[in-house]
Simulated scan of single mutants.
Amino acid sequence: MDRVRVVLVDDDQLVRMSLRLMLGGEADLEVIGEAADGDAAIAEVRRLQPDVVLMDVRMPGRDGLSATEAILSWPDPPRILVLTTFDSDEMVLGALRAGALGFVLKDTPPPDILAAVRTVADGNPALSPAATSRLITAATGPRSSETRRAAREAARARLAALTERERDTARAIAEGLSNAEVGARLHISVATVKAHTSSLFAKLGVVNRVQIALLVRDSEE
């Protein structure tokens, strides 16, 4: 069985040690490297080419958002799972907009963190209910009317390039529906849903469903 190769990024050595012990006890997961800041993370990820990066957001020096943006700009990058205490909501939102596949809170129970790592490794979003609630609060929090207007107009301009069925698919994805659930709602096959989703990635310039959801939210705010 191929193991999921993981790099841990956190400025707290005790957090990294706990995560290493947690993941190291699983037959299908392997911690292959660690980093304490964004610059070290970029270097380690480039050197080791992991499958998943468990990325803290608030660190001294280069933060996790900047490191995430840099890593996800590479061809065939690893999947990134944001690790946070949620004292920096805008950084988490920025990481998700940059293409991180999900996030977990640092006080998440170990089985849920392990499940999130596996989910992200499979290319699927990992947003726990508790964390998603915090994200929604952050995403819909106060912003200036000018900022909201600019984000809304930019999102609508990007969505305007879609066909009507692609827009329906995007809205369903934004609600968190699975491919099977999207197909049932739109009365189309799962294969057609996958084709529409691939088209969304190409037309919108996104790499995962989380980015689609955030774009739809911006267009409706």
Rank of each mutant, 00 (worst) to 15 (best):
D51H: 15
L105K: 06
E30L: 06
A155L: 11
I173V: 11
T192D: 00
A98R: 01
P60T: 15
A100L: 13
L162W: 05
D76H: 06
M91R: 12
L105V: 10
D112K: 13
E34R: 05
M17Q: 10
R171Y: 06
R143F: 09
G102M: 02
A172V: 07
V82P: 01
P77A: 01
E166H: 12
D112W: 00
S219G: 07
T169W: 11
S199I: 09
S144K: 12
M22Y: 14
R16N: 07
E181S: 03
R3K: 14
T84E: 10
N208S: 03
G24I: 07
R79Q: 01
E146N: 14
N208L: 04
R149Y: 05
R185A: 09
A98G: 10
R3G: 04
L200M: 08
M55S: 00
I136K: 12
V206I: 05
Q13L: 15
A126Q: 15
L23E: 09
G99I: 01
S128A: 14
M59S: 04
A121S: 11
L215V: 12
G61P: 02
L177Q: 07
R152W: 06
I113T: 14
D39C: 09
A213R: 15
D10I: 13
R5P: 02
E164R: 09
I113G: 10
L72E: 06
D89T: 12
L83M: 07
L65D: 04
D28H: 15
V7S: 13
A151F: 01
G94R: 01
M1F: 13
S198V: 13
T84W: 05
V190E: 15
S189I: 05
V117A: 07
V206M: 02
E175K: 15
E175T: 13
R20E: 06
A131P: 04
T197F: 14
V4R: 13
H196Q: 11
A41V: 15
V207C: 07
G33L: 03
L200F: 02
P110A: 07
A202Y: 04
D112R: 06
T137I: 04
N179Y: 11
I80C: 03
T108C: 05
E90Q: 05
P77Q: 07
M55T: 01
V120M: 12
A43L: 09
R158E: 01
Q211W: 06
E146M: 08
S128G: 15
I71N: 04
T119H: 13
R20Y: 05
V193I: 05
A130E: 09
R5I: 01
L127S: 08
E221A: 09
D89R: 11
R217T: 08
L105N: 07
T163M: 04
A126N: 12
R217Y: 12
L186Q: 00
A43V: 14
M59V: 10
D107L: 10
L114T: 08
A43N: 10
K203T: 07
H196L: 09
V206T: 12
R158Y: 03
D63E: 01
L127H: 06
R46C: 08
